[in-house]
């Protein structure tokens, strides 16, 4: 039997469009579900007081500190490495075997699951280097984890700087580094910042890599060698050990809001960047 193309066309639209709408609905459902149950729990007191009785009561203040410090340390370490790598790949070398190896390594690193980062961070930073379960171990592990994202987004941003700017700069007697500093990086900056923010978003939500490297202490850290607990880890412990559904929802809502703010500002920045370009 032969079905008229018009009907297959209609069927295709229905199926493909349905898949898209389903995907969007799942996203909306997750966000609304968490916010609906969690928002009533969140208030100033919840955010600024210490947890009591393992998190059964009280707030999440120390986990906010952990959630800020770990991604911060990670981007401080990974950003210069990532930007320099992308500058080298796009401005200082042509496509060779070496750059192919570097690119392949970056792609592979991006695909490594976070549990492997956790194992590595534990054996290398916590045990071998003797940093213990600490902010520094967690931050370094996250830095390794987000490095490929920063390299890729920076490279994209640098590639989007018009070639003619480079030509003009070189023709005016600039060296490669002067061109990078004065023309390429300033124009690629919004794209680079977008990549950094996406990395921050990923770090905030990360659990497996953090729990084995930064530990889960609820005390407020006094140095980078102290253990800390991030919001994601706190939420995991609350939810998994059934400590307090209410506080779990509150923590999850705070986590989702933080991640959404970071990601949405990243997209906003990206859009402005693209709008300016064209």
């Amino acid at each position: 039997m032969r079905i008229h193309p018009r009907y297959t066309q209609g069927g295709a639209v229905a199926v493909l469009g349905g898949a898209t709408i389903l995907t969007l609905m799942i996203l909306v459902f997750i966000i609304f579900f968490i916010l609906e149950k969690g928002l009533p729990v969140i208030n100033l007191n919840f955010l600024t007081s210490n947890p009591e009785d393992m998190g059964r009561a009280g707030g999440i203040f120390p986990t906010l500190i952990g959630t800020i410090l770990l991604p911060l340390l990670a981007i401080i370490i990974a950003t210069p490495l990532g930007i320099f790598t992308s500058v080298y790949l796009s401005e200082y070398t042509k496509e060779t075997k070496v750059t192919k190896v570097i690119r392949f390594g970056t792609d592979c690193l991006a695909g490594i699951p976070s549990i492997i980062f956790g194992l590595f961070g534990y054996i290398f930073f916590v045990i071998t280097l003797g940093f213990g379960w600490s902010i520094i171990s967690g931050g370094l592990t996250l830095a390794v984890m987000i490095l490929p994202t920063i390299i890729r987004t920076s490279e994209e941003a640098i590639k989007s700087v018009p070639k003619s700017y480079r030509e003009v700069s070189f023709s005016l007697g600039a060296t490669s580094w002067q061109t990078v500093k004065k023309v390429i990086l300033p124009n690629a900056l919004p794209g680079i910042v977008t990549g950094i923010m996406l990395s921050v978003g990923r770090s905030i939500g990360e659990t497996a890599a953090v729990i084995f490297t930064a530990g889960s202490s609820l005390r407020i850290p006094s140095s980078v060698f102290d253990s800390t607990r991030t919001m994601a880890v706190h939420f995991y412990i609350l939810a998994r050990e059934g400590i307090s559904a209410e506080n779990a929802y509150g923590t999850a809502a705070t986590l989702i809001i933080a991640v959404l703010i970071v990601n949405l500002s990243a997209y906003w920045l990206m859009n402005r960047f693209i709008a300016k370009r064209s």
Binding site: V168, G173, A174, K182
Partner: peptide, 25 residues
């Protein structure tokens, strides 16, 4: 020095465009 077929001002002020070369030196 070189002037290209398409005018390519760098995305900065008129003044900064002109002094780009001298500043490099």
């Amino acid at each position: 020095g070189m002037v290209f077929a398409m005018p390519v001002p760098l995305p900065m002020s008129i003044y900064d465009n002109i002094v780009y070369g001298p500043r490099l030196s």
